[in-house]
């Protein structure tokens, strides 16, 4: 995965709660045997009309947010299925970070494994930034080194991310390589547990 230390980008507000993975990538696009190319299917049912033309009323189609790299959304983002196609689609579209008061567990894990940084912060602050992003142009900086997200008006909020994932993402490490360094331990476990 691509290393991520610090990123500043335009924020697009998706003012909905419980955005589930069926919305992020509908099932008809899960049939690929590859990891790439899912960006064009992101939020398909909301983003496109029946005839395939862009649904102008969907926020991602607003030209104002064309270059957005950070998504801010309501709570319980990423609920539902375990499809990793959801973070793949968000990354492929160009998102580097998602901000929400709460993420669903499997989605959280899947995202961090792919270097999509999830920023879980207080709901009141999400609401404030959501409004600013809706009304004007909001740029935020997500910094994994300091574990903060900040705007250019001096508001800075801390967030937590498991240290293990933070190190992996900041260094762009391959997790399997790291685990295979512990192969002796795995073998020993298998031998003592009679597998």
């Amino acid at each position: 995965m691509e290393a991520f230390v610090k990123h500043t980008g335009l924020v697009v507000p998706l003012n909905r709660t419980n955005v589930d993975t069926d919305q992020i990538v509908p099932k008809q696009f899960l049939k690929s045997v590859k990891r790439t190319g899912f960006g064009k299917h992101l939020f398909h049912n909301w983003r496109y009309n029946e005839d395939g033309s862009p649904n102008e009323s969907f926020i991602l189609n607003d030209p104002k947010y064309k270059d957005a790299t950070i998504l801010i959304a309501g709570e319980n983002f990423g609920s539902g299925s375990s499809r990793e196609h959801a973070p793949w689609a968000l990354l492929d579209y160009g998102f580097k970070a998602i901000i929400s008061p709460k993420f669903a567990d499997i989605f959280y894990n899947n995202s961090l494994k792919n270097g999509l940084v999830l920023v879980e912060i207080d709901e009141a602050q999400v609401d404030k930034w959501m409004k600013e992003a809706e009304e004007g142009e909001l740029r935020l900086t997500v910094d994994l080194e300091t574990m903060t997200v900040s705007d250019d008006k001096g508001v800075s909020v801390s967030f937590e991310i498991p240290e293990y994932n933070r190190q992996n993402i900041m260094n762009g490490w391959d997790e399997i390589d790291l685990t295979l360094q512990l192969e002796d331990k795995i073998r020993e476990y298998e031998q003592t547990r009679l597998y």
Partner: peptide
């Protein structure tokens, strides 16, 4: 028993383990 993503499927294939908090 729990669901995992595809990166974790690959990790389990290769190591028969998974990192879990």
């Amino acid at each position: 028993a729990f669901g995992i993503g595809t990166s974790e499927v690959e990790h389990v294939f290769a190591t028969q383990t998974i990192w879990q908090h």
